[in-house]
Design a protein around this nucleic acid. Structure first.
Lengths: 148, 148
DNA sequence: GAGAGAAACTTCCTTTTAGGAAGTAGACAC
DNA sequence: GTGTCTACTTCCTAAAAGGAAGTTTCTCTC
């Protein structure tokens, strides 16, 4: 009972915010992009999985990949999540899904121009992670040592 | 029983991958970065919350913010998640947490240089979202119309 | 001096989400 | 006709997120 007013204000703010959120799709789109499987799939389809020097000029091959190829490359992903994420990316127009009726059906995925433009951003994230990883790990150790 | 071998291979691959994953912190770091609250907090502390023209030269003010300010700005976040995310960002050395023993204790958060460098990347994501939002929404509508 | 109030958290409980394992289709190879 | 392949779907359990209330320590009011 002590924080009645504060709680009420918080609830009020939430209602206002929810309305704002519903009206602000860019926030929601940002939520969708900030998903680890989305970023990893974009990296995979963008075509650089081996650690490469950032800044080096290399072709951004928007290579098409099969379902099983992606699955193998991002081996940590469950089939369910992979399918789910690929579908939502297709829905958003970031990649195309092509079914070839071969012996066992073949499905290939390829980045669209839109997907490729996003890939450029996520590739920045990726190279940031590679560049600053050591620093972050050191910070973590220091922090843990301080607080243990 | 039909997919015994395939399942075994998958399990095998998973074991190998998990070892790889444990040994490859950049993948894990990428997972951490690809978190919606991380991105939003970085945007907040970077100091541009109003929609601004991307590309316009404006100061990247790494302004310090209080807990309650951030909470208000990202009103959708629960207090628990905010505290949790801020702690982990502090642990990673992306921001500093300063406690000032005023009347009710005041805690302020500020991006470090490392955090600021990541902020530049996430700001790119943000502006991408704002730029291409309309296109994505259109794609979604088309997709839903096609598959309904 | 009893009570309210404020900031920044915790704690507890519920709901949503992700992950893992197994099942499905349909054509072919043996 | 049993096994195998790809690209899924379904089901169930485990982990994470969300919401609401409680906690602490001080100070100001009446």
């Amino acid at each position: 009972m002590t924080t009645m007013k504060a709680t009420q204000e918080r609830a009020q703010a939430k209602v206002e915010y929810n309305a704002f959120l519903a009206a602000c799709p860019s926030r929601r789109l940002l939520d969708r992009i900030s998903d680890k499987w989305v970023v990893l799939i974009l990296c995979a389809l963008g075509g650089d999985d081996s650690p490469r020097q950032p800044g080096a000029a290399h072709a951004d091959a928007p290579k098409a990949m099969r379902y099983s190829e992606i699955s193998r490359l991002l081996a940590g992903v469950s089939q369910k999540m992979l399918t789910q994420t690929l579908r939502s990316l297709e829905r958003d127009g970031l990649l195309t899904r092509t079914v070839t009726p071969t012996v066992p059906v073949t499905v290939s995925y390829e980045l669209t121009d839109l997907g490729l433009s996003l890939h450029h951003m996520t590739r920045g994230l990726r190279s940031w992670a590679q560049t600053h990883m050591a620093e972050v790990l050191e910070n973590r150790e220091n922090y843990d040592a301080r607080t243990s």
